[in-house]
């Protein structure tokens, strides 16, 4: 993200909810990259979970499919 302007929430529910969906997707993408990077740096799942503010089980269940390899870019 190289341009971040002031956030403004649209009055139109359709537009506001579409923004929520897009933000979740963006958050997922950031999370995936961050977890891959953490795994490459030998972080444990306990440490990743603590940093994400979730339980180790939750982090492992949701993110363990991510390999410790390169980002898929």
């Amino acid at each position: 993200m190289n341009d971040l302007f002031d956030l403004s929430i649209p009055e139109d529910p359709e537009a506001a909810l579409a923004a929520v969906v897009a933000l979740r997707r963006l958050a997922d993408a950031i999370e995936q990259r961050a977890v891959r990077s953490a795994l490459r740096q030998q972080w444990s799942w306990a440490r990743i979970a603590q940093a994400l503010g979730v339980s180790k089980q939750a982090a492992h269940k949701r993110l363990s499919h991510l390999s410790a390899g390169e980002d898929p870019i």
Partner: peptide, 27 residues
């Protein structure tokens, strides 16, 4: 539609920062 939705709240993504620009699928 994802980009437009983010743009509508003031977020503009470019290049490789956009979700979905990855070349390899997730496992």
């Amino acid at each position: 539609q994802y980009e437009d939705a983010l743009h509508s709240i003031g977020i503009r993504l470019t290049g490789g920062t956009r979700p979905g620009t990855e070349r390899r699928p997730l496992p």
